[in-house]
Amino acid sequence: MDIFEKCRNYTQAREAMESGSYPYFIPLDENEGTEVEYKGQRLIMCGSNNYLGLTTHPKVKEAAQQAISRYGTSCTGSRFLNGTLAMHEQLERELADFVGKEEALIFSTGMQVNLGTISALISRDDVVILDKDDHASIVDGARLGYGKIERFRHNDVEHLERVLKSLPENVGKLIVVDGVFSMGGDLADLPAIYPIAQKYGARIMVDDAHGMGVTGRGRGTAAQFGMTDQVDLIMSTFSKSFASLGGFVAGDDEVIHFVKHNARSLIFSASIPAANAAAALAALHVIREEPELADRVNQIGKRISDELRGMGFNVGNSVTPIVPVIIGDDERTFLTWKRLFENGVFVNPVVSPAVPQGMQLLRTSYMASHTDSQMDQVLDTFKKVGKEVGII
């Protein structure tokens, strides 16, 4: 059999393109933060992870520009060899201090943080335990490790305990959860997870890609619960609230030192350019100096959740600026996306396997820089479209 046969048989995306309902890889002509332009049409962006609106912040843009002028466009090597700048280490020190851990380590992307950290820590006799709603990067990092993978139902701590109880006492155990779940906008139940982890000798890693800058007045989900000391590892990305590209993991010095010398995705990837490090560092300073940005984006998220729910939409259990609109089947999900797009609102349709069958949804997300009038327009459009397609 020709290995490319599966490629020839894959027609679903092309069929959607031909029908005009293909919602992915949309080439934007302009991206100014809260609004974007596509073929001359202006749309309110409600599908970005730019939660604090810092991609256009003057301090962040200036820092990146100055870094390019001084260092050029690339480090042309891995952190392990010639790709470490003093700026990388400054950023690591400040990130560790910000999240309340001894050390931090920068990777080239958030995906690589999870691939490298989890696979480095999970040896052949170890077990990694995942929430079923964990991000794909966590799942892939677990697969790259040589140990066993177990999963528990989303935020079901009783099921988590049954899983842990079934494991031998003498194996290493790492529980990995999202702090803020990227599709549902709900939080990991860290206060309930921690005592169970302690009881069975398991460590806890929190992926706070969507929580950093947003929860805990910007310091993340562990800080929100007052559990920074109880969580062993905290990771996040720079591609969301930090308005850049890259990611980091923070924890005890000896653990970060081990990951630094054993994470293949770190050792065998080029380091982030100076411009990305400088942008992330400047964003970190803004997050520290302007905690009101986190307050603002959460206020917007609450308003949208409350008002969409009041209209009759199913927005799940979101308590963050990620507000899912759960529709439940592919056809109506894509139809609703298309009608919103045509009416000037950009959201993201999410179907299986990214979510289970029956949970197909529109993922909406908001920024601190959104105006009240923009949110008025978004809500009016949702009400209009929701009635047109029969959701409400």
Score class of each variant (00 low, 15 high):
151 R>Y: 08
111 M>A: 15
382 F>R: 00
215 T>C: 13
117 T>E: 02
215 T>V: 11
254 E>V: 03
246 G>T: 00
265 S>K: 00
132 K>P: 00
158 E>D: 12
254 E>H: 13
71 Y>T: 05
15 E>W: 12
93 R>E: 13
38 Y>A: 02
196 I>S: 09
14 R>T: 11
292 E>M: 02
126 D>Q: 02
182 S>N: 04
271 S>T: 04
161 E>G: 09
114 N>I: 04
126 D>C: 07
72 G>K: 10
90 Q>P: 04
34 T>C: 01
90 Q>K: 15
208 D>A: 03
60 V>Q: 03
127 V>R: 08
224 Q>C: 04
176 V>I: 07
55 T>W: 01
50 N>P: 14
104 A>Y: 10
87 M>S: 15
12 Q>V: 09
72 G>D: 08
215 T>K: 14
210 H>Y: 14
345 V>A: 10
31 N>F: 14
392 I>W: 13
283 A>P: 15
3 I>T: 06
198 Q>W: 12
332 R>V: 01
205 M>N: 06
15 E>R: 10
83 G>V: 10
71 Y>G: 01
20 G>A: 06
323 V>Y: 06
320 T>H: 13
41 Q>N: 09
184 G>Y: 11
366 Y>I: 05
101 K>W: 06
236 S>L: 10
252 D>V: 09
391 I>H: 15
121 L>Y: 09
368 A>L: 11
148 K>T: 10
230 Q>G: 07
82 N>M: 08
43 L>F: 06
7 C>E: 12
103 E>A: 11
73 T>I: 09
135 H>A: 01
232 D>R: 08
175 I>D: 06
185 G>T: 00
95 L>E: 04
292 E>Y: 02
